[in-house]
């Protein structure tokens, strides 16, 4: 249990009368790579919003490194080491790429990081993911794939122990998908546990050690990629009855 990073118990979230998440359990160990999949509207994004603190769940608890964080706001969770990237990139448009990375370094990672030489630390992070040549470009005018890279670099700058990556590869070409996967692997090698939400099956299968499947707000499968793919319930959810 000491290596348990995230423990989600009986998580329920309703929007009005609609039950988006129905008593879902989820756990993640240190440095684990988890794929979270499911059809559209199955509750994946709601799930990560509840984990990162963008939404508060109605019932159940979220524990991070053994501490109950259910009622903590998102910025406090970020300080503790939960970082996320957004499906639709949300760069700080008035800033350069480098300045974008300074924000999490100055806020989320403030308690854990060296307070001096913030921009040098930001540069190091860009170098580890081979993105340094874009450092001084305006973040608002990046290409799609570079925008995704910035999302991940910025999440990395928060010095997280858990990264939640929300469809970082949607709409990218297959070589671009490989580039993003490469970054996610580098991250993981540094000891970061990753929850990856993805529609691109090839990427999920290659990357994940374990896969959780959501359907209509319920968890219907949890196991190794092989097990999950041969689970009849998963087939039914994806192919219809």
């Amino acid at each position: 249990m000491a290596d348990r990073v995230l423990n989600v118990t009986d998580l329920t979230k309703r929007f009005g009368g609609f039950v988006a998440l129905d008593s879902v359990n989820l756990h993640l160990d240190k440095g684990e790579r988890l794929g979270l999949i499911g059809p559209n509207g199955s509750g994946k994004t709601t799930m990560i919003n509840c984990i990162s603190g963008s939404l508060f769940n109605d019932e159940g608890t979220v524990e991070f490194e053994g501490r109950d964080i259910t009622s903590l706001p998102a910025h406090k969770r970020a300080h503790m080491g939960i970082a996320r990237s957004f499906q639709i990139p949300k760069p700080f448009k008035s800033m350069t790429v480098l300045e974008n990375l300074c924000i999490p370094l100055e806020f989320a990672a403030w308690d854990r990081a060296d307070h001096r030489h913030i921009s040098e630390q930001a540069m190091e992070i860009l170098e580890t993911i081979k993105f340094a040549e874009r450092a001084h470009e305006n973040s608002g005018s990046l290409t799609q794939v570079d925008m995704r890279k910035l999302e991940l670099a910025r999440a990395l700058a928060a010095k997280p122990t858990l990264l939640v990556s929300d469809e970082a590869m949607a709409g990218l070409s297959s070589s671009e998908v490989d580039e993003i996967l490469e970054i996610l692997l580098v991250l993981n090698e540094q000891g970061v546990a990753v929850i990856m939400i993805e529609h691109i099956m090839r990427a999920v299968m290659r990357y994940s050690e374990r896969i959780v499947v959501l359907d209509a707000g319920k968890k219907i499968a949890d196991g190794s990629p092989d097990e999950v793919m041969h689970n009849p319930e998963v087939e039914r959810a994806y192919l219809g009855e």
Partner: peptide, 13 residues
């Protein structure tokens, strides 16, 4: 100013 949701998730109170 640039993105409030992203700011919150990057640890900005």
């Amino acid at each position: 100013r640039d993105d409030e949701v992203a700011a919150e998730c990057m640890g900005v109170p």
